[in-house]
């Protein structure tokens, strides 16, 4: 009896070892690439934040935590973080609401629904940098079509400088980003809506629940997991916003659109302050770790 157990255990162990060995072979190429291309540069970045960095790379002069102190006491850094948070919160809120609204609409029965569900993706297919240029041209103060239309309609008498006014610039950028990114939300929410059982609505209808109440008590709670997923994913994407700022405003006017990615880029490649730039990069990496953990938690909770 005992012997048999031992044999069995040995066999199971053998299978497990062979399984693990096979798994290691399968993941090896990927892990070499990912570790080499992500972990190695990150470690190098840590090194760069601790030593003085010249144009040709880190020197032997040890700085300790001086660079980190320089960053966290820099008011421009905090201001860029504030702008980034503003951009993230406003664009996420706007895009989530619009995304749900359009997804609900496209989930209704109407003629041409298949066509609409396809075409809705079009803005997202426009490359980020092209989107930035397109909106830069639409917003153009002298010849842009937006001012042209508003003037023709008599809504304004002289052109608005969309991207050159501190209070307007960041919101104009958010609008441009929203046009391109909303389709992504629509797509994800649509797939969420399609999993909701139609009988639930019928039952609620029989019970006399109106459309708004059905939305609040059936649709929203059932969409909640996917809303969470989308929010975390998009928070990460919004934190990395760079191209559209680079192309449209270069952080101006008066640093009103200076997001943290662009600030790090500016410090690094315009002021050639490599140590400073990599220190901001490190802080962003730490934020990314936190968000990754939150995201995993959200996904795991959802599975239960």
């Amino acid at each position: 009896m005992f012997r048999l157990r031992k044999k069995e255990a040995d066999m199971i162990k053998k299978i497990e070892v062979s399984e693990a060995r096979f798994a290691h072979k399968l993941i090896a190429p990927s892990m070499v690439l990912i570790f080499g291309l992500v972990l190695l540069p990150l470690l190098y970045a840590v090194y760069m934040t601790l030593f003085k960095v010249g144009v040709s790379g880190p020197t032997s002069e040890f700085l300790g935590l001086k660079q980190y102190i320089r960053v966290v006491t820099d008011r421009s850094f905090w201001s860029s973080l504030r702008v980034t948070v503003y951009f993230t919160v406003v664009s996420l809120a706007l895009q989530t609401v619009l995304g749900i609204a359009v997804a609900l609409l496209l989930n209704l029965e109407f003629r041409g629904r298949g066509f609409m569900r396809g075409i809705i993706l079009a803005p997202w297919a426009v490359p980020t940098i092209v989107n930035a240029q397109l909106w830069g041209w639409i917003y153009n103060a002298s010849y842009g079509v937006l001012n042209k239309i508003l003037i023709k309609l008599g809504m304004i008498s002289k052109p608005i400088i969309w991207l050159g006014t501190s209070s307007l610039a960041i919101n104009s950028v958010i609008a441009a980003d929203t046009w391109r990114m909303t389709p992504l939300y629509v797509l994800m929410f649509l797939s969420g809506l399609q999993t909701i059982n139609g009988e639930l609505y019928e039952a609620a209808k029989v019970d006399g629940a109106g459309a708004w109440r059905r939305f609040c008590h059936i649709t929203l709670p059932l969409l909640k997991p996917i809303i969470l997923v989308v929010l975390v994913l998009r928070t990460m994407q919004a934190l990395r916003v760079f191209e559209i700022i680079y192309q449209l405003t270069q952080g101006g006017p008066n640093n009103s659109t200076m997001v943290v990615s662009f600030y790090a880029y500016f410090k690094t490649f315009s002021s050639l302050d490599f140590g400073y730039g990599s220190t901001i990069g490190m802080l962003i990496a730490v934020i990314t770790i936190i968000i990754t953990l939150v995201y995993k938690k959200v996904l795991e909770d959802k599975e239960v």
């Binding site: 540069p41 760069m48 943290v260 730039g277």
Partner: peptide, 15 residues
């Protein structure tokens, strides 16, 4: 690997 996918370019580009 999830972290690597989420990491913004600005954190890696300088090194």
């Amino acid at each position: 690997s999830l972290f690597a996918q989420m990491l913004p370019a600005i954190a890696l580009i300088i090194p």
